[in-house]
Design a protein around this nucleic acid. Structure first.
Length: 534
RNA sequence: GCCCCGGUAGCUCAGCUGGAUAGAGCGUCUCCCUCCUAAGGAGAAGGCCGCAGGUUCGAAUCCUGCCCGGGGUACCA
């Protein structure tokens, strides 16, 4: 059972809803938000929304509701403001009670007995070169989204999907051979330092081994020497590495063909097998599935992969974190899947392009041109946590300028340090208190206004996690952290704990220990290692 | 052509499931360390929310059209 103290806004909206029922005899939802400190702890626009249905002036409705609320023990004040808002201030006792009820696993939802099985697929770059910063952006987004879904009790699988056998891999081999001087082509696909290194390392084998073996060797090398180390540096752990070729081996591909035929979605034209996606709502209406030369189109394994996800592996939901070059494909896949599995959910979260800014100018990144900064290099320069924070600071569907100079040279101006510094200051107080042998109390009996603000911000965390788990807007987490840090710094300047009389100081320490735990939960969800000192 | 994303302070961006005086960081300008780490705090300046209509008691937010920027759009992957 959720304690009402863990969700003050939903508690208040329930109270308001029952007030509306009692006063006006109608069922209505009442939204309660916390938008602005100047307007009390929480605000409701319920009266404004009811004016049409009740045919009454919103301020009159608000007045009656405010009176109703004033009689609730937990409500210290409820007043009508502006065109008919109700500003609600909760009692100090409410917040003190709220704090004493804070448990160590605050923010984490209890897992239900039967959790929804969710697959989160992200990065999924093929092993033809090192990860790009765009991959890193998608990686952090996917990882944090998975963490958030974890807190809500979902059964989450983090998956990396790749193909080490297709045309791109042939082009990789070709590029390496060109680099080694064994081949000449007009327009080779891949270049860069890693190609030179591969050409050198495999100089002998390039002439002695056959192409199939070489492809395996090259992709394996790229995986183990470039991709996996970078993912490790990003502090991301995948549960599953899914190879596209296994779809053929485990029969998923054939099973998919059967299902599509059975559903009458395949038709022939110009010697190719086409897939009708129109019925699933795809604006493109049809796509080639098997090319006229008998090979599957690149679209085909993608469909088979999702058949595998929903049929063989029985996921209830799959969330795809996609870069800008893959979004166009998604509607077609979803259209097919919606026809095959109407009860399953296939969703995507996209991120837009990332521009790297260096020396005030755009720094082009491309596997093909070979001019890029790798994820590993970036992390070596600015640190995994700063890189993660930077990438999560902006909404994923806006273009992003990553200022490399700012991130590495002026990192103290990075909001990351602002937030971390709040945690460091908190720990400094606890450390000093230990040295001065001041013990913490077992409860708090008074609460300052700024402390109420901090506790209120903590109380909003479950609502935030719930929102993010539904909207996938992971950037909201960084804004939340900055707001909390702002309140903490304000508090820190205002209240000098160790100068207080011992009894008062002990109470503050009790509060700080609660906040410390909450802070750690927050960092854990966002995937950052908290620092005790800086 | 069609599809996706964006256009909000000098810069980088929040806010967008409609609500009060549109916010933050950086940059600029004041003030605050005998005091738990000043990597901080308090304050000032800075806005036709791309443009034009529409819906609404109320629009940065929803709808339509247009303008500008980015990306995508093959029987390539």
């Amino acid at each position: 059972m959720k304690s009402k103290y863990n969700h003050p806004s939903s508690y208040l909206s329930a109270v308001l809803a029952s007030g509306i029922k009692e006063l006006f005899a109608i069922d209505a939802e009442a939204t309660v938000e916390s938008t602005d400190r100047r307007f009390g702890d929480f605000q409701s626009n319920a009266a404004l929304q009811l004016q049409k249905e009740l045919q009454r002036a919103p301020r009159d409705i608000a007045k009656e509701l405010a009176e109703y609320l004033s009689n609730i023990k937990e409500v210290a004040e409820a007043e009508v403001a502006g065109p008919g808002f109700i500003n609600i201030t909760l009692s100090d006792d409410y917040w003190l009670q709220f704090m004493s009820n804070l448990s160590d696993d605050f923010g984490y939802h209890e897992s239900p007995e039967q959790s929804e099985k969710v697959q989160v697929e992200f990065i999924s770059a093929n092993p033809t070169g090192p990860l790009t910063l765009g991959n890193a952006r998608g990686g952090f987004i996917g990882d944090v989204l998975s963490n958030v879904l974890d807190t809500q009790g979902y059964d989450v699988t983090r998956e990396y999907y790749f193909n080490d056998a297709g045309t791109q891999v042939s082009k990789l081999l070709e590029s390496v051979k060109v680099e080694a001087g064994l081949l000449e082509v007009e327009d080779r696909q891949y270049s860069g330092e890693y190609i030179s290194k591969l050409a050198q390392d495999f100089k002998e084998k390039l002439t002695t081994e056959d192409d199939a073996t070489l492809k395996k060797l090259l992709t394996k090398t790229i995986f183990t020497e470039y991709i996996q180390p970078d993912i490790k540096k990003m502090n991301i752990e995948f549960d599953e590495w899914f190879n596209e070729t296994s779809l053929i081996e485990d029969g998923s591909f054939d099973a998919t063909m059967d299902i599509l035929r059975e559903k009458g979605l395949l038709f022939e034209r110009d010697g190719a097998q086409w897939l009708n996606t129109e019925r699933g709502g795809d604006p493109r209406r049809e796509r080639v599935f098997i090319k006229s030369n008998g090979d599957p189109s690149y679209f085909a394994p993608d469909v088979a992969y999702h058949v595998n996800i929903f049929s063989q592996r029985r996921f209830d939901r799959a969330i795809k974190e996609l870069g800008p070059d893959h979004v166009a494909q998604f509607p077609s896949v979803r259209a097919v899947i919606s026809l095959l599995y109407p009860d399953k959910k296939l969703e995507m979260v996209t991120h837009q392009q990332l521009r790297l800014i260096k020396n005030g100018q755009e720094f082009k990144m491309s596997k093909r041109s070979g001019q890029y900064v790798t994820v590993g290099e970036l992390i070596d320069r600015v640190g995994a946590d700063v890189a993660r924070w930077f990438m999560l600071m902006r909404s994923s569907d806006t273009h992003m300028d990553f200022d490399l100079d700012l991130a590495e040279e002026q990192s103290q101006k990075n909001p990351f340090w602002y937030v971390m510094y709040a945690y460091v200051r908190l720990n400094a107080i606890l450390r000093q208190a230990r040295e001065r042998e001041i013990n913490s109390a077992s409860e708090m009996t008074t609460i300052a206004p700024i402390e109420k603000e901090m506790i209120k911000q903590i109380a909003l965390l479950p609502d935030l996690l719930d929102t993010v788990s539904r909207t996938y807007e992971v950037h909201k987490l960084t804004f939340y952290g900055q707001e909390f840090a702002r309140l903490f710094h304000e508090w820190y300047e205002e209240i000098h704990v160790l100068d207080l009389p011992q009894n008062d100081a002990a109470q503050k320490l009790y509060m700080l220990e609660k906040i410390k735990k909450m802070f750690e939960n927050y960092f854990e969800i966002i995937g950052i290692e908290p620092l005790e000192s800086m």
